[in-house]
Write a protein that binds this DNA or RNA. Sequence first.
RNA 1: CGGGGUGUGGCGCAGUUUGGUAGCGCGUCCGCUUUGGGAGCGGAAGGCCGCAGGUUCAAGUCCUGUCACCCCGACCA
Length: 603
Amino acid sequence: MAGPQSPSPQEPPVVAMRLSSLFLRTLREDPADAEVPSHRLLVRAGYIRRTSPGIYTWLPLGLRVLRNVERIVREEMDGIGAQEILFPALLPREPYDASGRWTDYGDNIFRLQDRKGNDYLLGPTHEEMFTLAVKDMFSSYKDLPLALYQIQIKYRDEARPRAGILRGREFVMKDSYSFDIDDAGLDVSYQAHRDAYVRIFDRLGFDYVIVQAMSGAMGGSRSEEFLATAVNGEDTYVHCPNCGYAANVEAVQVPTPEPIPYSGLPAAHVEDTPDTPTIDTLVASANAHHPRADGRAWTAADTLKNVIVMLVHPDGTREPLAIGLAGDREVDEKRLGAQVEPARVEAFEEKDFAAHPSLAKGYLGPGVLGSERPSGIRYLLDPRVVPGTAWITGADEHGRHVFDLVAGRDFTADGTIEAAEVRDGDACPSCGSALESARGIEMGHIFQLGRKYAEALGLQVLDEQGKLKTVTMGSYGVGCSRAVACIAEGNHDESGLIWPRNISPADVHVVATGKDEEVHAFAEELTGALEAVGVGVILDDRRAASPGVKFKDAELIGVPTIVVVGRGLADGTIEIKDRRSGERREVRTDSAVSEILAEIGRT
RNA sequence: CGGGGUGUGGCGCAGUUUGGUAGCGCGUCCGCUUUGGGAGCGGAAGGCCGCAGGUUCAAGUCCUGUCACCCCGACCA
């Protein structure tokens, strides 16, 4: 699937695909298991076939498209001096043990054993292998900087694969890694990759946005994602229309307000608030029985909600964690999960409350929360809960709350955490304007990995002073098979696919209608002439198929230019049709080749 | 992992309520006709009705168990 079999860019495919013999069967009806347009159409048009859940076979047309995506990626990687190699997909356990990912990846990794009972895995990404390969061969600062990449089939045992090849358990991904002696070098390597990615995604032809991201299970610092904008995307990101800031919702940093002086703030006081275990009941009770002095009504934003979750660390240990945030916001599980990775978040259950008698469910407060407090539970605050802010919060007794409890003065926590939901209208951390949210599909991810793997696997080189120095790495991925689905998502209509020219399985789809020998003879002649100048052709040379069938198939398959050889031939004309706009024009047969070349943007 | 749904020729589906010779459309094959928008007529091939038990003279249909798959959510690139 990867590199070696791919056509080189110097030799574009010039042998026409004839529908009379192409390994293709289009379907008139949508497959029952396909929901999203890309999945439906790629199966219907005969590009892919499902083999197993989340695992697909690439048929001739689909493979052409995938190869075209790979070609673009390859050209841009080569363009920044990255060198292509290819690791096995089947990998031994040891390197992943050394990095900790054998356990950190959990059930998402495909594991298997050989006949001797040795553990193996199907590679989800190859950080370890790249690191070890460099360690194996290079040992001097003079060998750096270095960038290596592969285009490889990856495996992740997704809990729920979906949407065809948009999110499968087996997928084709380009992953590359940079190796530098110092942080300055890493910055240069990172920027080179970033520039290459901009070129890749421009050439792939879909709308995308670059957002700040979390570095995820792989560790690291600077991190950006390339998201294809799509209303049905899986990832939520926010962007600022004023300054251009954009970030994955998991990575949004809430701007921290200035602390407020304590002077003049009333003292904290505990009040009876019976039957107020929820924020709504608390606000209602507070307004009814303990109205504010200034006449404004209490709102949920005046309350400090304390949520407890159970963290499950990779080694199985369970740790409760309390999060304090304004009562008008929910904890965003994705944001929380990203913060506590690689730990997993589970619910804090009744039995857990039973194990912590100091906790009064529904009336939790900072009086007992915190490592140094009676519960001993680590307590982290939303960054907006700055010193000087006053809150209504639980008094740690059933039916009682404390009012005017001031952060910093009356309570402290173990730190802050970015776990509160991000809402449209929240302040941009860069300029303070209102943020807007949108959806996208992650197509690429670049980040500064740092020394995590180099340290774990002992990748060091000698520096100018002859001293061993740990190498710093960058990691960069592009989902090639996902890109195929993503491009299909953005380029189709009711009739079928509409490929951008540079990734279409062919340049031209020639339809020969009818059974008239002259029509077929001319279609063959035209196809030969196009092949000769390097134009990729799909030729519908089926004698028995009716014109309607051929037109429908051409539209379904989605080659951007359709050439019809048929009834006009008697008058010396053929028809050139633009798949996307539907515009058609007749041209003289004697200028057919030059007209088609002009149509497809070649001269 | 929670919720919902579905397993019947290559694809899409009916049949299950009320047990009685396994059907329809598309696709495929043969013949004739047809050829500018998924053609017509005639003929044909192709199914352990997911799997395993059970009830019954008889099970696609009823009972028990089990497996698989799809969708929503959780999770994840």
